[in-house]
Amino acid sequence: MILSRRSLILSGVTAAAASSLPGLAYAAAGTPKRLVFIIQRGAADGLATVAPTGDPAFAAARRALADETAGGARLDTMFTLHPSLAQIAGLYAGKQAHFAHAVATGYRDRSHFDGQNMLAGGGLHPYGREDGWIGRLLPLLPAAERDAIAIAASAPLALRGTALPDTHAYSRLPRTEADLIGRLTTLYRGGPLLQPLRDSAIKTRELAGNIGGNNGRNGADLGTLAASLMRPEGGARVMTIETGGWDTHNGQRGRLAAQLHGLDQLIGALQTGLGPAWGHTLAIVATEFGRAIEANSTGGTDHGTASTAMLLGGGLDNGGEVSADWPGLGAAARHEGGLKPTRSLETTVANAVAHHYALDPKRVMATLYPDIG
């Protein structure tokens, strides 16, 4: 049986088992280009990830969280990278990482679900589109470059579109109760096919839901899995990875450090696993919105507005830079307590994708974000 990866979207509960399905082969791809979209579900704190330590208002606003980035790589006179991102710091030094700061979608409220829908769908308002920006991108690419796969809880909105008409989505149930897991374990136990599928399904879901677990090992394993699904020999060319755990309302210092370490390990393992293909890969890391400028009384941060997006890969033309039309952190410069957005995340994504695939930027913007561009 020959099945193109273009017609197969695997959820986080079954992705790791894909290669074990008997008789399953994939159509060969004729291009080295790869695109990976990593979603940080929960509103990742861009002010801690790429901290504006050169802003005179930073220390007073962040109070006890101001030294989160102590020991991190100094990117320029304004920004310092969180110390948990050591491998990504190496990419930055090698001009394979670019950070876009004070960016946001057009969403300005505080619902994670609505914000994530805007991030993936690329519409003017939540649930304004039934397809996603990657799904709209795929028809612009040669047929051999459209093979797409996702490590997610269900077929992600970002990949939906006319280029993926025959998708399989092995979605987890809305609530996977312990009793159900126990029953499935009993049912699958000892089966030469079902037992490995069940084990890898549970393992993959755990990796994506807690990339910082096991001292970052979960993130590394997830990156290794992603690379195995995108290797040059007939692998996918486009991937979405959904990661959770970025909502840091309390106890942010340790929790965010663990999350970022897991992300760092994910990227490092992806780079290692892809080998030379990393030089033809663009990885975009983005979140639905940022967090408040002021730390709260529980050692965390509440929902904000703008955040940081990462562009990673071996073919960047602006690697080793932080781009920001910096608004400042003073009270008058804020947007409802959060970092004021000064640049469009949609434009940032469209420009990066256009450069990666050598496409006309205006056409890409109008295709990926037709309601905006």
Rank of each mutant, 00 (worst) to 15 (best):
L10I: 05
A17T: 01
A17V: 00
A18W: 05
G23W: 05
A28C: 00
T31Q: 13
L35P: 04
I38Y: 01
R41K: 10
G42D: 11
A43N: 15
T53I: 12
G54W: 05
A57Y: 10
L65V: 07
T69Y: 00
A70V: 12
L75T: 05
L75D: 03
P83R: 09
S84E: 11
S84T: 04
A89M: 06
L91R: 09
Y92F: 15
Y107C: 06
S111D: 05
S111V: 02
F113M: 04
N117M: 04
G123Y: 06
Y127A: 09
R136G: 07
L137T: 08
D147M: 12
D147T: 11
I151V: 15
I151Y: 11
A153H: 07
L157F: 02
G161V: 10
T162L: 09
L164G: 10
H168Y: 13
P174C: 07
R175Q: 04
T176M: 08
Y188D: 11
Y188M: 08
P192Q: 03
L193D: 03
L194T: 00
P196S: 06
R198Y: 15
S200M: 13
I202T: 14
I202A: 14
T204Q: 07
L207C: 10
L207I: 02
R217M: 11
N218H: 15
T224K: 07
L225W: 10
M239Q: 06
T240K: 02
W246P: 02
L263R: 04
I267W: 13
G268Y: 02
T272N: 14
L274W: 05
A286P: 13
T287H: 12
E288Y: 08
A292V: 00
E294V: 11
S297C: 11
T298N: 12
G299R: 00
D302A: 09
H303C: 03
G304H: 02
A306K: 08
A309R: 04
A309K: 00
M310Q: 05
V322Q: 05
V322F: 00
D325I: 12
W326P: 04
L329Y: 07
L329W: 06
A331V: 12
A332W: 02
H335R: 04
H335D: 05
G337R: 05
G338R: 07
E346S: 02
E346T: 01
T348C: 13
V349I: 15
A350P: 03
A350M: 12
A352H: 09
H355V: 06
H355F: 03
D360Y: 08
R363A: 14
A366W: 00
T367Q: 07
T367D: 08
Y369C: 10
I372Y: 13
